[in-house]
Design a protein around this nucleic acid. Structure first.
Lengths: 187, 187
DNA sequence: TCATTCCGCTACGCTACAGTAGCGTAGTGG
DNA sequence: CCACTACGCTACTGTAGCGTAGCGGAATGA
């Protein structure tokens, strides 16, 4: 059962262009006709590999997240600084930052996309949860503090500035956020 | 030049149904045909009052915000508690909470909607800015603190929980957020 | 070589939607 | 009562998009 190279090629080209269109126009900006046009793969072939547009979207979205390398500097402060700087950088430049709002919007209504949103959120935030739970195990967190609170205290203001107030995410702001979150939470 | 009652009636019915559809399906869920169907106002009449779908959307969205009654309890802590509880309540139940993601998504691309988003954001957040600046004038804020930081520290986690992590916004969480934000910022 | 699998292509049918044209009617203000 | 305005209705054009059918050709791997 050797994998047919033609299939791999077609699938890869289609997924790449779907992702491309996704970042340009959000979920609403993707059409099968346009994917076919850009990828050079015939529309009929696309439907040979995915049963519907939704299935294609879900698969394309699921490749959005970057593999999360969780840092381990030895201290919660160090870990969080690294992670927050990286998240801010992604919010400024990464492709998925332009797609997430439309996924969130769709997730408000479509159950399938809601599942996707949950998975995506978990993937993006997983390193934060990991380092925070590690710190909790080391006793760096106050007893009455939930890791989820700390994650929200950091990611919340970042997301707020990126999408709601549209304020810049410069280094000063980032370090403010990390420092404030730590003073809330550490023993 | 008395206002024609027929015009007022038609406009009101159309705007109401547009708003209704908006909350149900976001911006993408609004179609002129459906508005006409539900409102009982003929499609041609709609186009007699608004030059395009975009114009109708903008006008319908601009009526989203609730008139902000800014509290004045005398202390920053009191004001923020009132405002945060109210915001959380709106995030849980208010119509616009279901629409905002699609506006944010559209604002990423469409300049017109971006302007709308800015206006909407300013309207929703205005009370927070007001009470915070008042506190600053009273000397309740540390010298190196921007009001915008405090607003982000409160609204950020709320929004994050509502749309990203989808955690519940119960009273305990709300009061945690307010208290933490205050300890960051007060003298 | 040869059957199998995959693919591109053209051509569909169907639905939804934006926006327009023209007519006859009904409500409005004076 | 009358001129005017707004309205509803039907019908239309044009576009975009989803998803399908069937054919002939080309790559694949045994």
């Amino acid at each position: 059962m050797a994998p047919d190279s033609r299939v791999q090629k077609s699938r890869a080209a289609v997924l790449a262009q779907t992702y491309e269109l996704l970042t340009e126009g959000g979920i609403g900006g993707v059409s099968i006709d346009e994917v076919a046009r850009r990828s050079g793969v015939a529309k009929t072939t696309i439907y040979r590999h995915w049963p519907s547009k939704a299935a294609l979207l879900v698969e394309a979205c699921s490749t959005i997240g970057t593999p999360p390398e969780t840092p381990d500097t030895g201290s919660l402060a160090g870990d969080l600084t690294v992670l927050t700087e990286r998240l801010a950088e992604q919010l400024r430049t990464a492709r998925w930052a332009a797609v997430l709002p439309s996924i969130i919007d769709a997730a408000e209504r479509d159950p399938d996309l809601a599942g996707l949103h949950t998975a995506l959120h978990a993937e993006i935030m997983e390193p934060f949860t990991t380092v925070t739970e590690r710190a909790q195990a080391r006793g760096e967190l106050a007893a009455n503090r939930e890791p989820a609170d700390l994650v929200a205290a950091i990611a919340g203001p970042l997301f707020y500035r990126r999408w709601f107030s549209r304020e810049p995410l410069d280094d000063a702001v980032i370090h403010h956020i990390v420092r404030d979150a730590l003073t809330q939470v550490t023993t």
